[in-house]
């Protein structure tokens, strides 16, 4: 287990580090994450200055560039924590969470950057991946979600091996009503994305991804849930090209797909929902079906 802050009382407000990919490609995932948090009594704050955590640069070996973005991240989020505006930072992505909690200290390894390293470490203990926060911090095991269909789970590499998070998302999924959880062969095997790896080594990346898709096909699942939209982009990119029926979804979309929504003023009115946002659950007690996703 990585060291995290132990909260005496449950956090009331968190800052959402939505990640650049969710921000630009999958806003519905960010909204689902925010709604999930709000439904469990946590107010969500979105710092608009946030951009990218620097992971692409770091993984490509461009450490100066990654360090510049790490500094930006610290500058943006630190005041929220320090001034007590929020108690924690929540990230709906395993790899970005790993970058912030695990690799920032590596970026500031040099003794001359001891001060920044300390800052990074202080933020790391209050930064949580979404399912980690729900289960470990809030003590949630069921989000009250209903989802009709066969669901399987893909364990994203950084979430699983850098963050050590696996039970949390599985627990939450297992408690989704009407969802039938099915096993996935090679659930903990890389999907082949690897950031720039997918561009630098497209053939290997594709071969790895196709193996994943084959396993998905054989699992019989309707959707595969995961905690990282980067894997999701890769898997859906392959599934789409190959004309496969199964779809990858972010876990927040399933955990948030519920019927008994408490009518809150911040609920997105349906007619105003833009096309890229997944539809809110159908009214009349019908559980959300997997076909409705995306």
């Amino acid at each position: 287990m990585r060291p995290t802050k132990q909260f005496a009382t449950p956090p009331r407000r968190v800052a959402l580090f939505v990640t650049c990919m969710v921000d630009t490609l999958y806003p519905e995932v960010g909204l689902a994450a925010a709604e999930l948090l709000e439904r469990h009594g946590v107010e969500v704050v979105f710092p608009y200055e946030q951009t990218c955590c620097g992971q692409p640069a770091f993984n490509a070996g461009f450490r100066d560039e990654a360090r510049a973005l790490a500094r930006r991240y610290l500058d943006v989020f630190e005041p929220f924590i320090r001034q007590g505006v929020v108690d924690a930072i929540v990230v709906p992505s395993g790899s970005c969470a790993a970058m912030v909690t695990h690799f920032y200290s590596a970026l500031f390894e040099d003794p001359s950057m001891a001060a920044e390293r300390r800052r990074a470490e202080e933020l790391a203990v209050v930064t949580f991946e979404l399912t980690e926060f729900l289960v470990d911090v809030l003590g949630v095991t069921a989000t009250g979600a209903r989802f009709e269909g066969k669901v399987t789970y893909h364990a994203s590499c950084h979430l699983l091996r850098e963050m050590g998070i696996d039970e949390q998302p599985r627990t939450l999924l297992a408690n989704v009503e009407d969802a039938e959880l099915v096993d996935l062969v090679g659930h903990d095997e890389c999907c082949g994305f690897g950031g720039l790896f997918s561009i630098k080594n497209p053939e290997i990346s594709t071969a790895m991804g196709r193996r994943k898709c084959l396993n998905l096909e054989q699992s019989g699942a309707d959707v595969v849930a995961m905690c990282d939209v980067s894997c999701l982009t890769h898997i859906n990119g392959l599934l789409g090209k190959q004309g496969q029926h199964i779809r990858a979804v972010h876990i927040a979309e399933i955990l948030n797909s519920q019927v008994d929504v408490v009518e809150t003023p911040e609920e997105l009115p349906r007619d105003e929902a833009p096309a890229s946002v997944s539809k809110p659950p159908a009214a009349g007690g019908q559980p959300r079906r997997w076909q409705d996703v995306r």
Binding site: D23, T24, L25, P27, Y48, S198, G209, L238, G240, P274
Partner: peptide, 18 residues
């Protein structure tokens, strides 16, 4: 060559959030 890529959202999360 082997994968589709999704278009960026018409409205970003930050726009929707605002």
């Amino acid at each position: 060559k082997t994968r589709h890529f999704p278009p960026l959202a018409r409205k970003s999360f930050r726009e929707l959030w605002a």
